[in-house]
Design a protein around this nucleic acid. Structure first.
Lengths: 245, 245
DNA sequence: CGCGGTGTTGAAAATTGTCAATAATTGTGG
DNA sequence: CCACAATTATTGACAATTTTCAACACCGCG
């Protein structure tokens, strides 16, 4: 599906005059700041029902503000399965959340004819504060933590218990590895109850699933000493790991 | 559980000399910037196994960086049920993600003896850029979007289908309300398939659950015209709505 | 050594998914 | 505008998965 851009009268309203203003811009600005705000929005576009909002068409990093309409965000997993991870309605900002973090395999699709305002991040930074290594790092921290927290939780709803546990183990392994610890031999710090709560299943199910993995020689486990024997098999159970960046 | 603070030699290492440095601070800083980084961390604390990291003890808004150890974040729902929403290991930053958004009902508990560095947000702002309304608003956007996206998704894993659908309907209603639309009569823009995908259940289950709600006079629904008849009942099904702020 | 928290396993019950049939609605082209 | 096809939605029967309830084993710590 492609996207049509038209220029019509109501696409040119200034931010400070927009009905959605209170939804998407901060309160209590002085006149000078309001003036600067009006320079933020680089363009507004109409998006037809069933068309996608392609981020890359508007520069790598842009914030979208939904002026009118309704969207869904769909993430495509490696195996071809899709999952809706969010809906967006008028006043919502799109592009700072989950869909921004999981790169290149997400689609933001209009569920009805819509109008979107586009604010390039570079412009936000011009207005908000001088570009600055520390500041951009803080933003990076935001992003990466959201990613780590979410990437597991995000798809839990659609996973069965084997997928959940396999995903959890691989995720844990990757986190250990990235910190210089062994990703193969892991000393679990949390109880089966904690794992169960995290994965949204019962602790008995965690036990049973781990037992199944042990029987299949995917892992060794006594007490909390975990040894991963067959990463490949775990990955295929976990759907080849959208979760492990 | 309370928390002990000790001052011992290894608690006073400068950030720029810390082993975790590459995990938690940006690369490529010049000497001046490194000097400023070292002023960021206001203190480091030891936290005993099974003790909690109390955010409020360190000013309302602080970023915690886990120097050594292992934590879990648990959110308590209204009905008393707890859910683990994240695990944290060395090098992780804590306090920018989910646990920050759902206020006052989350606990961050050490699963083993740990050491945490504390960076007040105010200090980050001093160093990163002048305090600025627009900048703080961008941060606010980050937060709120995360909150909205997550608050539904976060607990999906532990909900049954009735809880999922009730939660979805109430969430949708609240979003409509907050934008000045009716929260009672809603025109669904998305298909049953979209709802199913979002909630991690099958579309047949969505149909059946909606049918059950109709029979119980909780809602009216023909095609995509939804009328919510009994909010109270929906709320009690959805666990009294941790999701609706 | 015993007790409480943790972990495992079994069998029955409850929930959800799968497969299939059918209805209703929307879209399309003649 | 109608007819037909495709999509969306509902419902039933059965299969698979997960939970629930229960019993029991194991470690760790006083």
């Amino acid at each position: 599906m492609d996207m049509r851009i038209k220029t019509s009268s109501d696409l040119n309203i200034a931010c400070s005059k927009c009905l959605q203003y209170s939804q998407c811009m901060p309160q209590g600005l002085n006149d000078y700041e309001k003036q600067r705000i009006d320079t933020l929005v680089s363009q507004r576009v109409r998006i037809k029902k069933d068309s996608d909002l392609h981020r890359l068409n508007y520069g790598e990093k842009a914030l979208f503000i939904l002026r009118a309409g309704f969207f869904k965000t769909v993430i495509s997993q490696h195996d071809g399965r899709d999952q809706v991870v969010g809906f967006h309605m008028s006043g919502d900002s799109i592009g700072l959340g989950v869909e921004q973090n999981i790169e290149n395999n997400s689609k933001i699709t209009a569920l009805e004819d819509s109008v979107v305002c586009i604010v390039p991040f570079t412009k936000i930074e011009e207005v908000a504060n001088p570009s600055n290594l520390l500041h951009s790092h803080v933003r990076h921290l935001f992003r990466t933590e959201i990613k780590r927290e979410n990437s597991v939780m995000l798809f839990l709803g659609s996973m069965n218990s084997e997928e959940r546990v396999a995903t959890f183990l691989l995720n844990l392994s990757a986190n250990h590895e990235s910190r210089g610890f062994s990703g193969t031999n892991i000393n679990l710090k949390m109880s089966r109850y904690d794992i169960a709560s995290y994965l949204g299943i019962k602790h008995e199910t965690v036990s049973r699933t781990l037992a199944k993995f042990i029987k299949g020689n995917l892992i060794n486990l006594n007490l909390r000493f975990l040894k991963i024997l067959n990463f490949k098999a775990l990955h295929s159970i976990a759907n080849d790991g959208i979760l492990v960046s």
